[in-house]
Design a protein around this nucleic acid. Sequence first.
DNA 1: GACAATCCCTATTACATGAGTAGGATTAGT
DNA 2: ACTAATCCTACTCATGTAATAGGGATTGTC
Lengths: 135, 135
Amino acid sequence: MRISQKGLYALQALTVLARHYPGTVVKIRDIAQEEQLPEKFLEAILRDLKRARLLVSVRGANGGYELRRAPEQILIGDVLRITDGPLAPFEDAESLRRRIRSDAKHRALFQLLLDVRDATARILDHTSLADLCRP
Amino acid sequence: MRISQKGLYALQALTVLARHYPGTVVKIRDIAQEEQLPEKFLEAILRDLKRARLLVSVRGANGGYELRRAPEQILIGDVLRITDGPLAPFEDAESLRRRIRSDAKHRALFQLLLDVRDATARILDHTSLADLCRP
DNA sequence: GACAATCCCTATTACATGAGTAGGATTAGT
DNA sequence: ACTAATCCTACTCATGTAATAGGGATTGTC
């Protein structure tokens, strides 16, 4: 699972929102300036994070985005699953089985890739946004 | 690091060669048939593995491929680095630093991704081709 | 030496994904 | 009404993946 620019930008943006949590909404432009991110691209990313219920937004003048939960309760694994899909070297167990012909013969390979997935997930799901904001 | 079809095919082909190790070369066509892989694509993959010094080949009639070392000494990590590049959620440390603007502020993120890389590498570099051939 | 089998090499194709950009529709504060 | 902001659709452009095509070079067998 190579991390995408989208995933990187999402995490950078979320650290900004974490610093303003709770109470204040931050607008796209301000986040983009603070982290030097392309504004329009960031806009699409924040919409995705909102659809996935990580953020809430306020529309209109003085609008912006805010975390829906405390930074301690937002796991990096959650974020990257939204921006980059499953935290594994494959899409999902089903289609991996299909990609390996004669899966009976390659059970060990299958299990190995599951182990890799579990190891990454263990790390990413035990680190929160708050952890990323600490020095 | 999502595993590519190339990587999957490479590992499947290598298990065939491991079963014939040592002493006999196996031709592309036979490997392709045994594992149901596209022959021309497999050909390109085996060439890559040969260039990377994992295989040796014999040309001409009765030619084919053979492992250069014992299956116990071929690590899955080695194979996937050839077919899929670095075993990390990023290309290399340098360009990750470039992809994250203001890296000073995001040292924790940087370290987190390094941890993920180390965890995957630890698994993949401690599993050998011989391990994949066991039931 | 002819021939067939086999690896070796370059090029091309089709399709999907990633990384954005453009431009307007909608909503809210003044 | 005007302005500032989010929301939404669609589009572009570059790159990578998964092959396929079509030979060239080498070697064993007759």
